[in-house]
Design a binder for these strands. Structure first.
Length: 466
RNA sequence: GGCGGCAUAGCCAAGUGGUAAGGCACGGGUCUGCAAAACCCUUACGCCCCGGUUCAAAUCCGGGUGCCGCCUCCA
């Protein structure tokens, strides 16, 4: 069976055909690191992590690149507000990004290139575009001559003349045409800058991805992915830049994930209605957050809500209970049962269905429903008086197999021994006595993460497992 | 104004021609001294509305209604 994926470029599901047999070159637009990421930022990180895992599961050798935008207007503003330097702010939030996405089960990319580490490639790219007459310098800025690129609009399916009508750019025009976009931006007094043939400045937002994708993955890549809102103008501009330069298609498949909404409205940093992953993972099981995200098809919107997250957690816990029960049963199982082959075949049937669903444009929602069916099947098996070690192991293998694709371990972390809990509670009481509340809260959070809920009562501390 | 998406049970959500997956919640049951937990079962005569095509439509076509997004930094 072939993998099919929905390609924004053609607006159709297509059979995936890599450039090079068995290999996948994949580029996913990463964040601008001026703040902690919100859960909207986390969605592409998670869903394309699953795409990557699945391609690897199907035995492709995946070269996965995801960038950090570590210099731009927002970073400069953030640095000013924090009274810090741009590189420090970037460094701090890159670390936070890895921490937050790591908590959500996202594997690191093979490369995480940064703009500031690829300045020469970017300058060379722009220089070549100027030489080819696709770009021009104007008072220290460099702009892309949008109308010069014939296919402009082919990714976002916009006509260039309609775009012009919608254009709201009016004042301070250094451009030949309002549609032209910035490749290089002259530095203002005191701003972080790099030396270039056009004077001191920094790259525009779109050029970095073109330059870095080219450097790390080549002229034509297999999959380029990102949030839906990047399709225009960001990805459209990337296509224009790269194809103008190389004359080859930039990416064969363009994947775009849907938004996360709050009260049915788009979440964004600019609207101010965002939920930071950094905060959310303190309130909710990170695996449940991931599970929740994957329970909806990646192209559809998700309306974020704490209650929905809680019900996702309940569902995930049921699967974990099944796995726990299987393991428990394994301890004293003998090979008494018959029908071993029959059961193994049955379990393999679930795997086939799982693969079929994932093949169909990474339908994780359906893949998860198969997981629940497998869970029910396992529960039924556990009710039989005689169980076979082989079958139990096969069930467990199958859960681990699905888990490796979804990036969720269905094994529950080892619960703390009660003595350890008591000891931590004691330590917290001491901390509270000494008014070291931050340490006290830290312990409480730590215990909460392990599923232990503390309640301070007049009679002392009471705790229970969640 | 241009382009795109969505509308399925109380809630969430798959399903793009063959007679409505799955989850959460509710209800019933098994287990239990009781409870909790766990497990099992049940839950949409119908998929926004009106027409049409077809042996067959949630799925295709036409026309409505409502919601959302992109066209401006944004995952």
């Amino acid at each position: 069976m072939a993998i099919k994926l929905y390609n924004t470029l053609t607006q159709k599901k297509e059979v995936f055909q890599p450039i090079e047999e068995g290999k996948v070159r994949m580029y996913v637009c990463g964040p601008t690191v001026y703040n902690y990421i919100h859960i909207g930022n986390a969605r592409p990180a998670i869903v394309f992590d699953v795409v990557r895992r699945y391609l690897e599961y199907r035995e492709y050798d995946v070269h996965y690149v995801s960038n950090f935008t570590d210099v731009d207007d927002k970073l400069i503003r953030a640095a000013n507000e924090l009274g810090d330097e741009v590189p420090n702010v970037a460094e701090r939030f890159i670390a936070a990004y890895h921490e937050d996405t790591g908590a959500l089960g996202v594997k690191k990319a093979d490369e995480h290139p940064r703009v500031t580490e690829n300045m020469q490639e970017i300058i060379d790219f722009i220089t070549a575009l100027i030489e080819k007459n696709y770009a021009y310098e104007s008072e220290g800025d460099v702009y892309f001559r949008t109308r010069q690129f014939e296919g402009y609009g082919k990714l976002s399916h916009q006509s260039i003349d309609e775009l012009k009508l919608g254009s709201r750019i009016v004042v301070g025009e250094k451009k030949e045409d309002p549609l032209d976009f910035t490749l290089w931006k002259a530095a203002k007094e005191g701003e972080i800058s790099w030396v270039s043939p056009w004077g001191e400045g920094r790259p525009g937002w779109h050029i970095e991805c073109s330059a870095m994708a080219k450097k790390y993955l080549g002229d034509t890549i297999d999959i380029h992915a990102g949030g839906k809102d990047l399709a225009f103008p960001h990805h459209e501009n990337e296509v224009a830049q790269t194809e103008a330069l190389t004359g080859h298609p930039f990416a064969n498949y363009w994947l775009h994930n849907g938004y996360i909404n709050i009260n049915n409205e788009k979440m964004s940093k600019s609207l101010g209605n965002f939920v930071l992953v950094h905060d959310l993972i303190k309130q909710h099981d990170p695996e449940a957050i991931r599970f929740f995200m994957l329970s909806v098809h990646y192209r559809n919107p998700i309306n974020f809500d704490h209650e929905l997250l809680a019900s996702a957690k309940t569902g995930l816990d049921r699967i974990k209970d099944t796995v726990e029960n299987l393991e428990h049963r394994l301890i004293n199982s003998a090979d008494l049962a018959e029908n071993v082959l029959e059961w193994k075949e049955k379990i393999e049937g679930y795997q086939n269905r799982f693969v079929n669903e994932m093949d169909d444009d990474f339908n994780t929602a359906n893949a998860i429903s198969i997981l629940f069916e497998l869970s029910k099947e396992a529960n039924l098996y556990l009710q039989e008086t005689n169980s076979s070690k082989e079958v139990l192991e096969k069930f467990l293998e199958q859960f681990a197999d699905f888990g490796s694709v979804l990036g969720i371990s269905f094994k529950r972390e080892k619960a703390l021994l009660d003595e350890d809990v008591d000891q931590l509670i004691e330590e917290r009481n001491e901390a509270r006595k000494q008014r070291n509340f931050s340490r006290a809260d830290e312990i409480r959070d730590e215990l909460k993460e392990q599923g232990i809920l503390l309640e301070d009562t007049p009679q002392g501390v009471r705790w229970k497992r969640m």
